[in-house]
């Protein structure tokens, strides 16, 4: 613990600051050029949309779980409410998804508020358990109320052709740019959050709730706003998801498999970091494309889940905080 440790540490810090600007800007530039390289109707664009939707969900989860340390095991709730809300409002009332998505986010935030109010005064696993319980409830409800949700078969969004007001398109190109804007916006928001007062408070609550309270941080309120922000972001991604796929079903929305997949990008890429969910999500979609191709060749299904599990194990064993992790305890 001598001063000799200082100079190399500073050296790393300075070079990192540069990379932290150059890398994201370069990645964004390459992404913008992608459609012109691979063609605007390319299958690859669809994969990119899928990856970015996945990344956006990871970014949203990261806000409350990675930065705030509140482990949500049921983020599918917010995703599903956003997706179903948007689809139902459009199908039954003809409401444009531009408004429906926002209303879905509002509904999602209301659910988040109830969950937080019920569990955030308690410490430990209660919040995590509540998120699982509400996921299971909503999945059952979605299967039961066939008239509204389409039941087990799910809900197909009424397709009216290319339309800006209905946010529908035969080409993946608009969705490519929409999801790119979303991922970039969430990335910038996460970076700003990490350097903001509210972000410090969230991280203080994550590291030591009691010490945070003794330092003047309103613990309950901080967790609550963290969850609300995360729920809103998740629901907006759900709205974009349902516009792209034009379908949603109970398992994809509220299933625990979905909820677990939402956690993987941050866990692999780096909990509580801005770049972590982006890298983690990108790796996962690349891997899943390879395993899907293999599955098709070998008729062995579920290779993607196997690969995710293996990657997660390797990360947890060798880089516990994730690839970009800065958390010492990995939690």
């Amino acid at each position: 613990m001598s001063d000799t440790a200082m100079s190399p540490a500073n050296g790393v810090a300075t070079s990192r600051i540069n990379w932290r600007l150059i890398v994201p800007v370069a990645v964004i530039a390459l992404m913008v050029l992608l459609p012109f390289v691979v063609g605007t109707q390319s299958y690859l664009l669809g994969i990119a949309v899928r990856a970015m939707l996945f990344i956006a969900l990871g970014q949203a989860w990261n806000v409350v779980a990675g930065i705030g340390g509140q482990l949500s095991l049921g983020h599918g709730v917010f995703f599903g409410v956003g997706a179903y809300g948007t689809a139902i409002l459009f199908n039954s009332l003809g409401l444009t998804p531009w408004v429906g998505g926002v209303l879905g986010a509002v509904a999602s935030i209301a659910v988040a508020g109830l969950m937080g109010a019920a569990t955030f005064r308690l410490r430990g696993v209660y919040f995590a358990l509540a998120t699982v319980a509400i996921s299971l409830c909503l999945e059952k409800l979605a299967r039961h109320f066939i008239g509204i949700t389409g039941g087990d078969a799910g809900l197909a969004v009424r397709f009216i052709g290319d339309s800006l007001s209905a946010a529908q398109s035969r080409s993946p190109l608009p969705f490519f740019f929409a999801s790119l804007v979303m991922v970039v916006a969430y990335y910038v928001l996460t970076r700003r959050l990490l350097r903001s007062n509210f972000g410090y408070q969230l991280q203080a609550v994550r590291d030591d709730e009691e010490a945070a309270a003794a330092s003047g941080v309103p613990v309950f309120r901080t967790k609550m706003w963290g969850l609300i922000l995360s729920a809103g972001m998740t629901a907006l991604t759900g709205a974009l998801y349902v516009q792209f796929y034009l379908a949603i079903d109970p398992g994809a929305a509220f299933g625990l498999g979905q909820a677990i997949q939402i956690q993987l990008p941050s866990l692999i890429g780096g909990l509580g970091t801005a770049g972590g969910p982006v890298i983690g999500g990108a790796i996962m979609i690349l891997v899943s494309e390879v395993t899907n191709w293999l599955s098709a060749r070998t008729a062995i299904h579920g290779l993607d889940i196997l690969a995710y599990g293996a990657i997660l194990l390797i990360v947890v064993m060798f880089v516990p905080g994730g690839l970009l992790g800065r958390t010492r305890r990995g939690a």
Binding site: A204, D207, A212, A214, P218
Partner: peptide, 24 residues
């Protein structure tokens, strides 16, 4: 009164075992 409100009244507590925020 809640702990954060006590802090806001001007009572600061350095807890046993320091309990700094290790990841900040």
């Amino acid at each position: 009164i809640k702990p954060h409100a006590v802090a806001r009244l001007g009572i600061s507590h350095v807890p046993e075992g320091r309990r700094i925020f290790p990841n900040l």
